[in-house]
């Protein structure tokens, strides 16, 4: 920008800001963003045993778990549009969610109660997620069984959509829903991740 606006004497070079400086400043912002100044959405990245995750929460609870393949920009923009535009990266505020996911992926069946905010699912999709939360660890249901339990036995496709748009995969166990022919079916995080999660729940160990 200096070059485009010449003056008689050239502006001295402005030193580049070290990344550590900007990180330290960001931490000050995170620490100050509480109470009335809290963001609409907190989020952090998590390098997990099933790949990179983005975990987001409101003041009410965890609102979104996203796999890297979903695309960070798209996930954050959707959160801005649907929850609120004050979306801030605040790793320290999501320690509980990160600990829950790490414990679960390490084989703990019920790590501890985790506050959830299911506002990203509405209507029928939300009722499907509610039924899903009742499917016990290590068990599987078919899309048809889930449709029946949601009092909509003919809505198998809609149940599939509800699972495919689950805003809280892993935490709300849509991976426990498999196809009637016995195959595991598709998954937000990739079919292979679904297979690994089912193995984790069967054996207590997440396969590589």
């Amino acid at each position: 920008m200096t070059e485009s606006t010449p003056t008689e004497a050239a502006m001295p070079t402005v030193p580049a800001t070290p990344p550590q400086r900007l990180e330290a400043l960001h931490r000050r912002l995170e620490a100050a963003a509480t109470g009335d100044d809290a963001p609409d959405v907190h989020y952090r990245h998590l390098d997990s045993a099933v790949g990179g995750l983005l975990v987001a929460a409101t003041e009410q609870g965890v609102v979104r778990v996203a796999f890297a393949r979903e695309g960070e920009d798209a996930v954050l923009q959707a959160l801005a549009d649907r929850v609120g535009p004050r979306v801030l990266r605040t790793p320290g505020r999501l320690d509980a969610a990160a600990a829950w996911l790490e414990a679960y992926l390490a084989g703990r069946r019920q790590p501890f109660p985790l506050a959830l905010d299911t506002r990203l699912a509405r209507g029928f999709r939300l009722s499907v997620l509610d039924r899903l939360r009742e499917v016990p660890y290590g068990e599987r249901v078919t899309y048809a069984q889930l449709a029946a339990s949601a009092d909509a036995p003919r809505a198998v496709r809609a149940v599939g959509t509800a699972c495919a748009t689950n805003p809280l995969p892993i935490v709300i166990p849509c991976h426990r829903v498999t196809r009637s022919d016995g195959s595991t079916g598709a998954y937000l995080g990739g079919a292979e991740v679904k297979v690994r999660l089912l193995e984790l729940e069967r054996t207590g160990r997440l396969p590589d």
């Binding site: 959405v41 535009p85 979306v87």
Partner: peptide, 9 residues
């Protein structure tokens, strides 16, 4: 709010 980018950006 639908046109706003996430504040972190």
């Amino acid at each position: 709010p639908a046109t706003k980018e996430p504040f972190e950006r």
